[in-house]
Design a protein around this nucleic acid. Structure first.
Length: 937
RNA sequence: GCCGACUUAGCUCAGUGGUAGAGCACUCGCUUCACACGCGAGUUGUCACAAGUUCAAAUCUUGUAGUCGGCACCA
C-alpha cells in the first residue's frame, strides 16, 4: 500500500465532503431507527453578505463536533443551516456597488428595481458563506437550508406581526429614536455602539433673561440643538435659580421666547445646574417636555442637516457646521462664557460608525412585557435555557430582560420584510397578512403599504421554529414535532440580547415551548496581542488562510481546544501543534497499515465477549424487537477467533492500552456531555500521542514488524488496527477529514461498524458507532503493572542520558524487586531490553553490582546500571542527591501533615491511609538512595 | 454609577479543597527500519497581594491592586 509520508489535508478535505453530502449522510433521514432519539441544532444564520471569520469557525466547530458525536451515537440528528438577509448590511453593500458600477443611488432605481437587484446580488454572491461552511466540514443538512427572506419564513414574519398587533403589543408611535443620518434609518438601542471621543468640548452658553440684565448659563456638548430649545430646566431645590423659575428667556439666534422650568431630573452639581431642553432632539429632554407640555421643535432633517425651523442662517447646514456657526454667533454676541475640554461618549451606528442623532420620529414599536414575563418565568421555574458557562450569562440575561424596554422594529430600508400595514388617504391604518386582507378591511383597494421594513432581528427571532416549517398557517410539521425544541444553541455573547432572548420569547409565545434547552456562549477569538480582531485594526486572521496553511482538522482542534466561554488569543503555534498531531495520527496509522498483511480490524481480538454483548444490548435498546435479520447480523459477528484466543492471551501492553482506550472513551463522552471541549481534546491528544504512539506502538513494534507470518503476529496486527480504528472514531467529531481518510484505508472496516441506526448506509466513519467506553475493559491491575514497566524503562533512559551513554551502546540492567514484580519485568523483558537499549536484564531479590554503577529507585524496585569506566561519580552523586531531595521535600511535608492529630482524626480515613503508604514508600526509596550515595563516597 | 470576569512556568492557557499541569519556547543527546510536523532525557512556578474559614486553600470568603468586559448615565 502506498501512503504518503506526511498528511496532506487538502486531498482529504476535497474528497470526503462531497461524498458525505451526496449520500445524504447529513440529513436526519439517514437514520433508520424509527425510535431513535433526536438531536437538533440550528445554526445562528450568518449574514448573506458575510464571509467566514474566526468567531464563526469556533462556533461552527463546536456545533459540528456535537452533531457528529450525537449522530455517531445513533441520534436522529439535524444540524440546520441557513443565512440571514441582514437588512442594513446587505442594503449598504449593494448600494455601494451600485454607486461604483453605475454611479446610481437606490432612489435612481426605485424600490422595486433595487430590491430585485439585491436578490440578484444574493443569488450571485450569497453562497460565499455557504461554500465556506462546506469547507469547514460542517455536517449540516443542505436539503433544509433556509433564508430569512424566503416565502415561508416571510409568511411567519407577517403572521407574528399581525397577531402581536391584534393583541395590542405592536403599535405605532412618535418617540425619540436612534437615527443614523447616513443610512437614514432608525436603529434599536442594541444596534447603537459607543465611541469615546477624548477631544470633545463642553460649551457654556449664556441665555439673556427678558426684562432683566441677568443671564442664565447652560452647558451643552451639542450647541446646534439650542436652535430647537423650548425651555431651560433647573432643579426645584437649587437656591441659585429659585427666583428665576418661571422667568422668560429671549433665546439667542432665534426670535423665540422660552421659559425656565423646574424638574427633579436636573442635577444641580452637574455643569451649571441649568439644562437647555430640546424635546425633539434628546430622549431625556423629550420626557421633560412631556411632563411640562413643551413644544417639540424639530430643527434637523433626516440627513442631520438643519431645517427651516432652525432659521434662515442655519437651514441646510450640516450639524457640525451649524455647531461652529452657533458658537461663533454666541461669541460675537458676547454670550459664550467658556469652552471646556470634555470627554464625550458618542453613540454611533453599529454598521457605518456614523454618529447617531436622537430624533423625534414616528415608528413601529413592540411592547415586550408579556413575552418578557414568559421568558423570565421560564428561567425562574425551570432554569431554562441553561447557559454554559452559567456565570455570568444567566444573570446578565435575566437582568436585561427585567429592564427590557419597547423594541423599535421598523427600519427605513427597502431590503427586508415590508411592514404588513396599509394606509388609506385619511391615514387610517390596516394591518393584515396580505394586501387583499387589508383591502377587505378597508373596503377599498386604494391603500398604500407602509414603506418601512422590519428589523432584521424580527425574523431571526423566529428562526428556531420558522425554519422547521411553522409559519402561522402551517403550525404543525413533522420537523417541528421532531426537532423542536432544539438541544443547544451555540453563539457569542454579543447577541444574547439581540437574538437569544428574542428567540426564547417568540418561541414561548407562538409555539408554546422553549426554542432550545442549552445555550453555549463561546469566547471571543482575539489576535495574538489579546486585541479584538477588527477590520479597522486590520488584525483579523482569515480562517481560510489557516485552513490552507495547517488544514481544517488542525484548525478545528485548536478552536475546540479552547476553554468554553473564555476569550483566547490566537496563536499560529497552537494550530501548528495540532497540525503536528494530525501528522502523528497519519503516521501512526501509516505504520500499522504498512504492517497489516494478514490482519484486519476485528473486535474479537480485543474482547470478543464484551463486544458481542454490547451489540446485542445496543440492538435491544434501539430496536423494538430483534428480527431474523438482526439474528443473522449477530451470528456474523460471532467471534470464532475468540474461542482460540481468549482475553487472557492478551499481553500486559494489550490489556493496558485497551484499558486506557476505554477510560479515554468514558472521559471524552463525559467531557462532551458537559460541553468541556478542551478537556476532550486534551484527553484525545494525550491518549493518542503519549499512550498509543509513544508506548503501545513501541511495545508491540517487534511483534508487528516480524517478517514471518504467524497467528501471533497477525493477531497483534489486528489488535493494533482495531485500536487505531477505535481511536479514529473517538477523534472523528473533531477531525472529520483526517479520520475518514484513514478509516477508509483500514482493512476490515465496513458498515457493520456503523451504529445500528445506519446499517444500510455505505461505510463511513461518520456513521460508525461512537465508543462509549466499556467498564469491563478497564483493568487497573494492568495499568499499574504497565506503569512499573514504563517507570523502569524511563529510569534507565534517564541514566543513559545523564551519563552520556551513546544510543548505540547496549548496557546491562540490574533490577532488585520482589517476585511479583520480577515476574512482570520478566514477561516484558523483550520490550524492556529494546526500549531501554539494554543487552540483558538481571532480576533478583537484591542488587549485586559493582560500585561503579548508576542507580535509581522506582516503586517496589531498585535499578542499577554498571558503568565501569563510564561513570562520572560527581554526576552520579548529583543525580542521586537530586532524587533524594525531591523525596525529602515531599516526605517532610507529609510527615508534618501526619503528625497533625487534627488531620489524622478529621480527614477521611482513606486519605490518611494513602498518605501513610506514600510516606512508607518515600522512606524505602530514600533509604536506598542514601545507601547508594554512601557507597559512592 | 451598577454588575461581572480575569491575574498560575519565558509566552499562550488548562486545573477549582488533599503531591502544581499542557502546548510552545529553552538545554542536552539522537539520520533508533511510522513520523525531524519526529524520538529520548531535562530545566522552569511566593498559583497577583493581604487577611479569614478549614485538619488541609492555587481552589472557598472578605478586602486591596492591576487588566478586561457588559449595562446605565453622560446638560
Amino acid at each position: 500500500m502506498e501512503i504518503a509520508k506526511s498528511y496532506n489535508p487538502k486531498e482529504a478535505e476535497e474528497n470526503h465532503y462531497r461524498i458525505w453530502e451526496t449520500r445524504g449522510c447529513f440529513a436526519p433521514e439517514i437514520n433508520e431507527n424509527p425510535n431513535a432519539e433526536k438531536y437538533s441544532i440550528v445554526i445562528p444564520p450568518p449574514n448573506v453578505t458575510g464571509s467566514l471569520h474566526m468567531g464563526h469557525a469556533l462556533q461552527h466547530t463546536i456545533m459540528d463536533t456535537l452533531t457528529r458525536w450525537k449522530r455517531m451515537q445513533g441520534f436522529r440528528t439535524l444540524f440546520l443551516v441557513g443565512v440571514d438577509h441582514a437588512g442594513i448590511s446587505t442594503q449598504l453593500m449593494v448600494t455601494r456597488q451600485l454607486k461604483k458600477d453605475e454611479n446610481k443611488t437606490p432612489q435612481d432605481l426605485g424600490r422595486e428595481e433595487f430590491v430585485r437587484r439585491v436578490w440578484d446580488w444574493k443569488n450571485k454572491y450569497g453562497d460565499t458563506i455557504t461554500n465556506q461552511i462546506r469547507r469547514e466540514g460542517l455536517s449540516v443538512d443542505w436539503s433544509r437550508e433556509r433564508f430569512t427572506m424566503e416565502e415561508s419564513l416571510s409568511i411567519a414574519v407577517r403572521e407574528v406581526f399581525v397577531r402581536l398587533y391584534e393583541e395590542g403589543w405592536i403599535y405605532r408611535g412618535t418617540r425619540i429614536v436612534n437615527w443614523c443620518p447616513r443610512d437614514k434609518t432608525v436603529l434599536s438601542d442594541l444596534e447603537v455602539k459607543e465611541d469615546k471621543k477624548k477631544d470633545g468640548k463642553l460649551y457654556f452658553l449664556q441665555y439673556p433673561i427678558k426684562n432683566s440684565d441677568a443671564k442664565i448659563t447652560v452647558a451643552t456638548t451639542r450647541p446646534e440643538t439650542m436652535l430647537g430649545d423650548t425651555a431651560v430646566a433647573v432643579n426645584p431645590n437649587d437656591e441659585r435659580y429659585k427666583d428665576l423659575i418661571g422667568a422668560t428667556i429671549e433665546l439667542p439666534l432665534t426670535n423665540r421666547e422660552i421659559s425656565i422650568i423646574s424638574d427633579e431630573y436636573v442635577e444641580s452639581e452637574f455643569g451649571t445646574g441649568a439644562v437647555k431642553i430640546t424635546p425633539a432632539h434628546d430622549p431625556n429632554d423629550y420626557e421633560i417636555g412631556e411632563r411640562h407640555n413643551l413644544e417639540k421643535l424639530v430643527v434637523m432633517n433626516d440627513d442631520a442637516t438643519m431645517n427651516q425651523a432652525a432659521g434662515a442662517d442655519f437651514e441646510g447646514l450640516d450639524r457640525y457646521k451649524a455647531r461652529e456657526l452657533v458658537v461663533e454667533r454666541f461669541e460675537q454676541l458676547g454670550l459664550l462664557e467658556k469652552i471646556e475640554d470634555y470627554e464625550v461618549v458618542l453613540p454611533v451606528c453599529e454598521r457605518c460608525k456614523t454618529v447617531i442623532e436622537p430624533l423625534l420620529s414616528e415608528q413601529w414599536f413592540c411592547k415586550m412585557d408579556e413575552m418578557r414575563d414568559m421568558a423570565l418565568n421560564l428561567m425562574r421555574d425551570e432554569n431554562s435555557p441553561r447557559f454554559f458557562p452559567e456565570i455570568p450569562h444567566r444573570k446578565v440575561y435575566t437582568t436585561w430582560l427585567e429592564n427590557l424596554k419597547d423594541w423599535t422594529i421598523s427600519r427605513q430600508l427597502w431590503w427586508g420584510h415590508q411592514i404588513p400595514a396599509w394606509y388609506d388617504e385619511a391615514g387610517n391604518v390596516f394591518v393584515a397578512r396580505t394586501a387583499e386582507e387589508a383591502f377587505e378591511q378597508a373596503g377599498t383597494s386604494d391603500l398604500i403599504q407602509d414603506s418601512d421594513v422590519l428589523d432584521t432581528w424580527f425574523s431571526s427571532a423566529l428562526w428556531s421554529f420558522s425554519t422547521l416549517g411553522w409559519n402561522g398557517v402551517v403550525t404543525e410539521t413533522e420537523d417541528l414535532k421532531t426537532f423542536h425544541p432544539t438541544d443547544v444553541l451555540v453563539t457569542g455573547r454579543d447577541i444574547i440580547f439581540l437574538w437569544v432572548s428574542r428567540m426564547v420569547m417568540t418561541a414561548l409565545k407562538f409555539v408554546g415551548e422553549k426554542p432550545f434547552n442549552d445555550v453555549i456562549i463561546h469566547g471571543t477569538v482575539l489576535d495574538k496581542n489579546g486585541q479584538r480582531m477588527s477590520k479597522t485594526k486590520n488584525n483579523g486572521i482569515d480562517p481560510l488562510d489557516v485552513f490552507e496553511k495547517f488544514g481544517v482538522d488542525a484548525t478545528r482542534m485548536t478552536l475546540a481546544g479552547s476553554a468554553t466561554g473564555v476569550d483566547f488569543a490566537w496563536r499560529d503555534e497552537k494550530v501548528e501543534s495540532f497540525r503536528n498531531f494530525a501528522n502523528k495520527i497519519w503516521n501512526a496509522t501509516r505504520f500499522c497499515l504498512l504492517n497489516s498483511d494478514g490482519a484486519q480490524v476485528d473486535y474479537s481480538f480485543l474482547n470478543p465477549k464484551a463486544e458481542a454483548r454490547d451489540i446485542i444490548q445496543t440492538l435491544k435498546g434501539e430496536l423494538s424487537e430483534i428480527d431474523e435479520e438482526d439474528e443473522e447480523f449477530l451470528d456474523k459477528i460471532d467471534p470464532t477467533f475468540a474461542k482460540d484466543n481468549p482475553k487472557e492471551n492478551l499481553s500486559l501492553a494489550d490489556k493496558w492500552i485497551i484499558s486506557r482506550l476505554n477510560k479515554t472513551a468514558f472521559a471524552v463522552n463525559n467531557a462532551l456531555e458537559t460541553y468541556q471541549f478542551h478537556e476532550a481534546v486534551q484527553l484525545l491528544y494525550h491518549f493518542f500521542w503519549d499512550d498509543f504512539c509513544d508506548w503501545y506502538i513501541e511495545l508491540v513494534k517487534d511483534e508487528i514488524t516480524s517478517e514471518e507470518p504467524n497467528v501471533r503476529r497477525d493477531a497483534a496486527r489486528s489488535r493494533i488496527l482495531t485500536i487505531i480504528e477505535q481511536s479514529l472514531r473517538l477523534l472523528h467529531p473533531f477531525m472529520p477529514f483526517l479520520t475518514e481518510e484513514l478509516w477508509q484505508k483500514l482493512p476490515g472496516v465496513s458498515s457493520e461498524l456503523h451504529n445500528p441506526a445506519y446499517k444500510s448506509a455505505e461505510k463511513t466513519i461518520m456513521l460508525s458507532d461512537y465508543p462509549r467506553g466499556d467498564s469491563s475493559l478497564i483493568d487497573e491491575k494492568a495499568e499499574s503493572e504497565m506503569q512499573a514497566v514504563i517507570d523502569l524503562i524511563s529510569k534507565v533512559r534517564n541514566i543513559r542520558a545523564e551519563m552520556n551513554i551513546k544510543p548505540s551502546e547496549k548496557i546491562p540492567v540490574f533490577v532488585a524487586a520482589d517476585s511479583d514484580a520480577q515476574k512482570i519485568f520478566l514477561e516484558n523483558e523483550a520490550q524492556i531490553l529494546k526500549l531501554a537499549r539494554a543487552e540483558r536484564l538481571n532480576l533478583a531479590e537484591s542488587l549485586d553490582v559493582p560500585k561503579a554503577s548508576a542507580k535509581a529507585v522506582i516503586a517496589g524496585a531498585e535499578i542499577a546500571v554498571p558503568l565501569e569506566g563510564l561513570i562520572d561519580f560527581d554526576k552520579e552523586r548529583e543525580r542521586l542527591e537530586n532524587q533524594l531531595n525531591k523525596l525529602n521535600v515531599e516526605g517532610e511535608r507529609l510527615e508534618k501533615q501526619l503528625s497533625n492529630t487534627n488531620f489524622v482524626e478529621r480527614a477521611p480515613q482513606e486519605k490518611v491511609q494513602e498518605l501513610r503508604e506514600r510516606v512508607a514508600e518515600i522512606e524505602t526509596q530514600s533509604k536506598t538512595l542514601k545507601q547508594n550515595l554512601g557507597a559512592l563516597m
